[in-house]
Simulated assay, not measured.
Amino acid sequence: MALHLVKLCVGCDSVQDLQDWIDERMAAMRRAGEAAEQRHTTRMVPKRVDELLDGGSLYWVIRGSVQVRQRLLAIRPFRDGDGIQRCHLVLEPALVATEWQPRRAFQGWRYLDQRDAPADLGSALSEADGLPPALSRALAELGLL
């Protein structure tokens, strides 16, 4: 059974905000001549790497609810310029919409067992196919999504 991570998506008000940020970052990496890969830097290094890389994903909490996930491709610990241990979570750039699952705010990331992970809504993300984000958020907060 796959193990996942869940993390707050700080600075994004919608899934589209996250998608735009990913697209901008990937384009900037290509312009700089770097290998374009989507990665998220975190301070703590997961200990259960093998379980996470066996089909695990990073589930993003946006505006108080898990809304989307990205498959984990690699976990790369490193030391930054100040000598502080950090970690790159390398993610598949494709976002997969999930059922909305309310989550309280927390710091860092948390492990998420497969049995507790929200189900996927479809293969590709398309907010145009769904409800407006504000309506989706309100319905999720009421437990109706």
Rank of each mutant, 00 (worst) to 15 (best):
D80A: 11
V61S: 10
E24C: 14
D116S: 08
A35N: 06
M26Q: 07
V66G: 03
M26F: 13
E37S: 14
G56D: 04
A128I: 11
A36K: 10
S65C: 12
A134V: 09
L73M: 15
A74W: 01
E37K: 15
R79C: 11
L142Q: 12
F78N: 04
R71Y: 13
L89V: 07
A97R: 08
V66A: 10
L125D: 03
W60E: 07
F78L: 03
L91P: 02
V61Y: 02
V96P: 02
A97C: 03
G81A: 13
L142P: 00
H40L: 15
R110G: 01
D113S: 12
V68H: 09
H4L: 06
D116M: 01
A2I: 01
G81L: 09
I75R: 02
R76C: 05
P132D: 10
L89G: 06
E127V: 09
Q38H: 15
D20W: 04
F106M: 05
G122M: 06
R76I: 08
F106R: 13
P133V: 02
V45N: 02
L145M: 12
F78K: 00
V49H: 00
A134I: 09
Q107Y: 08
V66L: 09
R76P: 00
I84E: 11
R63H: 11
D23C: 01
A36V: 12
E34H: 13
M44Y: 00
Q67N: 11
A36F: 03
E34K: 13
A97I: 11
D120W: 07
Y59E: 00
R43V: 06
R31P: 04
Y59M: 04
A105T: 15
C87N: 08
A94D: 13
G55C: 06
E24W: 08
D17S: 11
L53H: 03
D129I: 00
E24D: 10
Q85I: 09
Q70P: 08
R76L: 12
S123W: 08
R103F: 08
V90C: 09
G83S: 09
L125C: 06
G143D: 08
K7T: 02
I75M: 05
K47W: 02
E37V: 15
I22M: 11
S126H: 07
D113N: 09
I75K: 03
D116P: 01
Q38N: 15
A128M: 09
R86K: 14
A94P: 06
H40M: 12
L145A: 11
V96T: 14
P77G: 08
A74M: 09
V66Y: 04
R137F: 01
C87L: 02
F78W: 14
V66K: 07
C87M: 08
R31Q: 14
M26S: 04
Q85F: 04
L58I: 01
R30N: 13
G64Y: 07
L5W: 05
A74N: 12
Q85P: 09
Q101P: 01
A35I: 13
Q38C: 04
E127F: 07
S126V: 04
D80F: 10
